[in-house]
Design a protein around this nucleic acid. Structure first.
Length: 422
RNA sequence: GUGGGUGUGGCCUAAAGGCAAGGCACCUGGUUGUGGCCCAGGCGAUUGUGGGUUCGAAUCCCACCACUCACCCCA
């Protein structure tokens, strides 16, 4: 065996896996476009500085997870560790703020983060991403959440848990952080080492600590929703009112804080069971300060990113069926060198007519070719040998019933077309 | 970055210090030109890599690599 292996944390997606991928992508794309989202493709790599400034220099992603390299022009570039920063950059750079607002965009493709792989986590994974730029209305937050919920529902998912919280804005978040830090003062020597560090660097993160000794302290910690400013409180109340109106269940999770700096107001995740410890199948929220942080015009935004590998894990765990790979409609077998030109010609003719056709290569026994036709799941096998050539016909065998007919070569394509039309 | 588990043909699984065995898959034949079931044969492994112990290592020891699960964190 070759000593070449795929890089750690990457995936080969084999042909037999593709039905899942095709189905998820087609479904998500269809629903996104139905809701007025347009596709935006952004580069796989961007200036390192874009992500550092967009995501935040104190975050794990920027601190230790980026694939950063220097190109020959001595520019520091980074393989995108998420979509949002690139999408907002594209919005600003292409002057999309002069289009009718808001702009609703979807993107899909590979994302790169240098992490230790585990169930549902890879160094290269694939996201389906939605963003609404230029809308402050909580109805935009709602629309993102509804769309993502509809995508999961349409895939047949059950038992998903929607987790919702608000993390405030620059006007109220610092006040809450101070209150939280103040509360933790009393328990400084009781919390885990990680939380001692978090209290200095990223205080909100103490809330989703899983260490045993921190649980009772978290349970009694003040809730951010009780310390929001008027604007944030109103926004959050309206969003929840809409969700209730539409009878969309969600769980208010005071401990939900996300790892990226740019989030303001709404944050949410969707959790699925049965796929290991990495159970979030999507995560998102509002980022009203991001465009400005990237030197663009002040532009509110809200979005979500869904991980396709995890979605496919859920599909498998829940036994969701997907359309199978298409099998060839016709297998062209040929006996004897003299029949080959006719076989090649017939194959081309069938394909030009839109019939999925497989041609047997090499000179092999008919038995072997029939076996191959069977294994490939062909509906019909056309046998071309010297007998048939002499009479200008092909022997056409129905591989399901075993019936065999003799058909004029001139009419064969139409004959097959007629019988294989969906 | 930390910790646990696992590495034997393409895939699955035996061999517990003494000839690396079997199943699936693949190829060929049993039928001069007819698939699925059956039967026969064949191809295919320096046992993840490198060292060490031993007369002898898939097996014991060490290191590295990879996979995997979990922590951290996240899709």
């Amino acid at each position: 065996m070759s000593h070449f292996q795929r890089p750690t944390g990457t995936l080969d997606i084999l042909p037999e896996e593709q039905p899942y991928w095709r189905h998820v992508r087609a479904h998500a794309t269809r629903l996104a476009e139905r809701a007025g989202f347009e596709r935006l493709d952004v580069p796989v790599f961007e200036s390192t500085d874009l992500f550092a400034r967009g995501i935040g220099t104190g975050t794990d992603i920027v601190e230790k997870e980026m694939y950063t390299f220097c190109d020959k022009g001595d520019n520091s570039l980074t393989l995108r560790p998420e979509f949002t920063a690139g999408v907002v950059r594209a919005y600003i750079e292409n002057g999309m703020h002069v289009r009718p607002q808001p702009v609703k965009l979807y993107s899909t493709g590979p994302i790169f983060r240098y992490e230790r792989p585990q169930a549902g986590r890879y160094r290269q994974h694939t996201q389906f991403n939605l963003e609404i730029l230029g809308a402050q209305d909580p109805a935009a937050d709602l629309e993102i959440m509804l769309l993502i919920a509809d995508i999961y529902a349409g895939l047949g998912f059950e038992n998903l848990s929607f987790q919702l919280n608000s993390t405030g804005c620059p006007a109220c978040k610092p006040g809450y952080v101070a209150i939280l830090q103040d509360y933790y003062q009393h328990y400084r020597d009781q919390v885990c080492d990680d939380c001692q560090r978090r209290l200095e660097q990223n205080p909100l993160r103490v809330l989703d600590c899983k260490a045993e000794q921190c649980q009772p302290i978290i349970a009694n910690a003040p809730h951010i929703v009780e310390h929001l400013c008027d604007e944030c409180r109103g926004h959050f109340a309206l969003l929840r009112e809409y969700l209730d109106l539409l009878k969309r269940p969600y769980k208010l999770n005071h401990r939900l804080v996300r790892g990226l700096d740019y989030y303001t107001k709404t944050v949410f995740e969707v959790w699925a069971g049965g796929i290991g410890a990495q159970s979030a199948v999507c995560g998102g929220g509002r980022y009203d300060g991001l465009a400005q942080a990237l030197d663009g015009p002040p532009t509110p935004g809200v979005g979500v990113a869904a991980g396709l590998e995890r979605i496919i894990l859920v599909m498998k765990a829940q036994g969701v069926k997907v359309p199978p790979l298409p099998a060839p409609a016709v297998f062209v077998a040929c006996v004897g060198e003299k029949a080959r030109p006719a076989a090649v010609q017939l194959t081309d003719e069938l394909r030009q007519a839109g019939v999925a056709t497989w041609l047997a290569f090499e000179q092999r026994g008919l038995r072997s070719q029939m076996r191959e036709a069977n294994k490939r799941g062909a509906s019909y096998t056309v046998i071309l040998g010297e007998d048939e050539l002499a009479r200008g016909v092909g022997a056409v065998r129905n591989m399901h019933s075993g019936e065999q007919a003799t058909v004029d070569l001139a009419e064969l394509t139409a004959w097959i077309q007629h019988r294989t039309a969906a």
